Amino acid sequence: MSYDATASADPLDLGGVIPPTVTVFADDESVDYESTAAHARFVVDRGVHGVFPLGTNGEFALLDADEQIGVVEAVVDEVGGEVPVIAGVGAPSTRHTVARAERAADAGVDGIVVVTPYYYPLDETGTVEHYRHVADAVDCPLYIYHIPSRTGNALGHATLDALADIDAIAGLKDSSKDVPWLSRAIDEHSDLAFLAGSDSLQLPGRLVGCTGGVSAVANAFPELLVDLHESYAAGDIEHARECQSSLYRVREAFKGGPYMAGVKAALSLRGFDAGTLRSPLQGMDDGEQSQLEATLRAEGLL
């Protein structure tokens, strides 16, 4: 598949709408692999261009290594070969990241997503060596996940320059919400695929050169994001702006409860039971879900 992208260094030509698919838990908080795979099927059947299991919305940091590979295997078995499957494999240590990357590659993913190591602060040398070790361990494209608000480690442009010299690095998912940083990064590395990682920046990200985006809202309403992307690709910027305006309102409604609770609450309103979040994360209460439902109905999404 191809997009209006400059990602000549990206063997997957990654772009379009890529939901960070959810991990479904049973009532006892064990992973429901069948329903997790069913969610990947849910978004693929509604037109998305790839899936990203084990991102932030996949609650990857709350899963152990065996649970993580179980999620990857379930998603690859369900939708692999239909759209690119890029799996999150990041961990605070290089050793654990390499091990998870190797297992994901063995499971048949098309690419891996490596969040910058978190908790401990890193300098440029540590960051570059981390990614170099992971890139050397697997034979598939590697995408950097830049989310400094969660990891505590932001990438400077000089560090990105050094990372771009690693052959396996094909692109970057940027959730910094720093548009000047992103715009400069794209300008200086036009051979890499850049994905906008914030719902608020799906259209603005494309306008500065992103090939597509990773959207939490796309987990529940992939049609809205596909409409935005296709309108933009067709040159209908006015309709793409209308989609982005709706996306602003939907995302704000998602934030009307505990962190990340909106996605699974919205899925339940669509009739897809995505289960609970894993503790200590909490779901929406009845009042919060009612407010969410009112917004979604006003937007014509239910």
Rank of each mutant, 00 (worst) to 15 (best):
Y33W: 02
A216S: 15
H39W: 00
V79H: 02
A233S: 14
E230H: 06
L207A: 09
E129D: 11
V134D: 09
A99C: 08
D139F: 07
D273I: 10
S290W: 00
P121V: 04
S268V: 05
R241V: 10
S8R: 15
A107C: 02
M1C: 04
C210L: 11
R206F: 03
A74D: 10
I112Y: 10
G15Y: 00
D64A: 07
R95G: 00
D273L: 11
A220I: 02
A65I: 00
P19V: 04
S198T: 11
S35K: 15
I147R: 08
G55D: 03
L247N: 07
A38H: 00
I166V: 10
R241E: 09
E238S: 12
S279R: 15
S279T: 09
L12Q: 12
Q289R: 15
H96E: 14
Y259K: 13
A164C: 09
A135K: 01
F25E: 01
F25M: 06
R206A: 08
A196Q: 06
R95T: 12
W181P: 09
E124V: 07
S8V: 15
I147Q: 08
L163S: 04
S246N: 13
M1V: 01
D236Q: 02
L281V: 10
G205S: 07
V128I: 01
L247D: 02
L228C: 11
A253K: 12
L142I: 06
G152S: 06
